[in-house]
Design a protein around this nucleic acid. Structure first.
Lengths: 368, 368
DNA sequence: AAGGCGGTTTCAAACGTTTGCAGAAAAATT
DNA sequence: AATTTTTCTGCAAACGTTTGAAACCGCCTT
């Protein structure tokens, strides 16, 4: 077994690999006895502890690779109390929104040797609550959260926070919790977009807003109102409708608008899925987009480019949001008790055909 | 500490909970010393071992709940060698395809107390390889796989299989691996769809096919060819183009078709994303869908309902596929070495406006 | 010659479970 | 009453790592 005595070697393992079924993994014990040193030395070497002589470290790394060693994360976590896993709690995975953010989170986390556990609640608060418990039970080192719009599990999250679990929010930030969050500059962009619709001649702009509990969605509504005010256009309550983020809700709202005979020449929805539903229903009614009605969404993703006509929207830098969220969480994990810091990212306005017959205004931030 | 001696009680823990930061979790040791019994009894009771007297078991369950015990999955896994976690390897999460299947997988797995680890390779074979290694390193009890179309990591999967990791495929089944898979009856549905296009008067049907390595995609192509043959329509190589599954590829193919002056009156793509790209490009060229060109996709999801006009496609029962895959994997895990069994699920044909001006043919399986 | 001091390495005790085996108590058989 | 069987519980050794504290070694200082 021991190299110094010339007995056996890694062939032992290679043989077993091919034969026995559950195949024993190589452990640090194996490396240690192979080199006739103690396990603690091996452990420290592999952890890049500076108390290990350079040659020893290199020798250990080399034989670890030779023997095909893979550290057992279970044992490491059990002993160290850190799982090197963070949880990501999302409220939907139908649109590419979440998956893009997750990609960003992974970029940072995997680089830091941390793996991530994803739970999707599909906008079901009960499922969300269960997911939070899964996170807790999985002993994650921290979690990144995008809550359901209802925000009814805030108490549960507070409990976790009380237990010392680091936590970062993105997308939807619940009012009344002090935790780092990464949000987009929704107000500015929504203002700009409304402004743009007005400048291109629209006067009767419908706004489909989200639930008030979510601060970020409220911002969009506020921007809409303030921009109307700037242009001295009266704020018409009939033109403001609340809906949740789904195409079906969009269709419903469009239907309501058509039925009630309200006259409108633009629709600005707080979510792409709603805007898409609106477009579809208006299409069916024989209305032309954008000639008859301009449509704009918000919080867009690749989806908005796939529909026809391509949808004007505001695209948050999803991947970057994920990366920022990951960085914030790492800060929290590494320095518990550090004060909570927020990050605002810059969303990009995408003026596309759904709002402008000629989608090439000179002030377009990025035209496609 | 010990109840029998009237010392301390759970208040001890409750107190600590509120104060100390990293908050010690309640362990079976705590329960044991609380009741003055051995940890093994507690462990067995909580595992529903039949060697425990009913009253003892109930007592233990009760106090476990009182003390707020939550089993430490790390320790359990380390000792037992089972992680009660299965991996899910997907090649994309942009479309809702994956997330629906994952939902199905979760339905079954969570019911069986198994959690799932999701890795997305975004159709990048290198990332896919890394993800496979993450799975291996995470000591999952088994994995459910939907490979990249390139299929270049098949060797790596074979290695895992050789190490005794149970494995189930869905969606794309690599040729040349014996493992359980769940696939849809693609051939039948593709045949039907082609037939339908021909019956509605289309003669020059373009087929956009996938890479040959994937058996399920080859089926679609075969069905297309066989159906043409049935109608004595010659198979024209110029009308068959290979592309990978993305809207951009769809646009590229459409552009190629327009440029080369090939005449065609229908496009049947092996993937919805391709079909959507085609539609967009044809729209831009001023062609009407379906009047000038009928378009049909395959392997659809909610996405196909969002675009305009709604896309004719074949929708596999995604959730059911996930559930079947999960069941197959559980079989493999519980009875290692059992022979591999395949499951075929029935996909639904959705005739929508993109292929039929009047989407209401009498033989439509489900019209919307 | 005794002591001190870095730089390295080892010892041994955790971490919270599961589980084969032994042992005790109770029940059943002789 | 003595034995066997059955039912239940306890002991203690794992699982593979991390980590504080101790120990060793060679070298320098006094």
């Amino acid at each position: 077994m021991c190299q110094k005595f010339g007995i056996a070697n890694n062939l032992y393992y290679l043989c077993r690999d091919k034969l026995s079924q559950p195949m024993k993994r190589v452990t640090i014990k194996d490396i240690a006895s192979h080199l006739c040193i103690s396990v603690s030395t091996v452990s420290r070497a592999l952890a890049d502890d500076r108390n290990i002589r350079k040659e020893t470290r290199e020798l250990i790394f080399r034989t670890a690779k030779e023997l095909g060693y893979q550290r057992n994360p279970l044992a490491a976590s059990l002993r160290s109390g850190r799982t090197n896993t963070v949880g990501v709690l999302v409220n939907e995975m139908v649109s590419p929104f979440a998956s893009q953010v997750i990609q960003g989170i992974q970029n940072i986390m995997h680089f830091n040797g941390i793996s991530i556990l994803i739970c999707n609640s599909d906008n079901d608060p009960d499922q969300e609550r269960r997911n939070i418990q899964i996170m807790e039970n999985s002993l994650v080192d921290g979690i990144i959260v995008s809550l359901c719009h209802t925000g009814q599990n805030i108490d549960e999250l507070k409990r976790l926070q009380g237990r010392g679990v680091p936590m970062v929010f993105f997308d939807h930030s619940p009012a009344g919790m002090t935790a780092p969050k990464v949000v987009a500059n929704n107000y500015d962009k929504a203002f700009y977009l409304t402004d743009n619709l007005i400048l291109s001649g629209r006067r009767h702009i419908v706004h489909i807003k989200g639930p008030e509990v979510m601060a970020d969605l409220a911002d969009i509504h506020n921007a809409y109102r303030d921009c109307l005010c700037k242009h001295r256009i009266p704020y018409d309550r009939d033109l403001v409708i609340e809906a949740s983020a789904s195409p079906d809700e969009g269709r419903r709202v469009a239907e309501h608008l058509l039925d009630s005979g309200i006259s409108f020449d633009a629709v600005f929805a707080c979510h792409d899925l709603i805007a898409i539903g609106v477009m579809n229903r208006l299409h069916d009614a024989g209305l032309r987009i954008p000639e008859d009605v301009a449509v704009a969404g918000f919080s867009g993703s690749q989806l908005s480019k796939l529909v026809y006509p391509p949808l004007t929207t505001v695209e948050p830098p999803l991947c970057e949001m994920g990366e920022e969220a990951a960085r914030l969480l790492l800060e929290q994990i590494r320095h518990p008790g550090a004060e909570s810091r927020n990050v605002t990212v810059d969303a990009k306005i995408k003026l596309r055909k759904s709002s402008h017959a000629e989608a090439s205004a000179p002030h377009v931030e990025e035209k496609e």
